[in-house]
Amino acid sequence: MKRTITVTINGETRSDEIEARLLLIHYLREVVGLTGAHIGCETSLCGACTVELDGKAVKSCTMFAVQANGRSLTTIEGLAKNGELHPVQEAFWNEHGLQCGFCTPGMIMASKQLLERNPNPSEGEIRHGIEGNLCRCTGYQHIVNAVRTAAERMK
């Protein structure tokens, strides 16, 4: 049975008719056309699908789109403003916080959440904050550097 949901995505409100079983990640990628959030493991382990729901980082592969009805979502596409990268995006660029880039959208969303809750994290707190996101390329060293650089920038 289809139903209509209304959500605000990156500041724009839209309505779509969807099935209750449609996962949020499939809604974002296939209905809305925002392919920045990735499908990695699809088992809520890898974090590549991380988006923000009402300001909280969530794994969009483990949520139904109907649960987002009436709520506000931010995806990686919503971070840059007027051509200016978000400080976390810029830090990932400058510190080479990625190699293949597959995990990067989720990694940046998780890092943004971390810095909003803890503007001055220690290395241990950074690693704890991104433990829900897997990267198979970098060994995490440059990612941790990027988060630390972003923290400095955002002060």
Partner: peptide, 9 residues
Amino acid sequence: IGDVQIRNR
């Protein structure tokens, strides 16, 4: 429990 995204939900 889990990770921050899991603990948020």
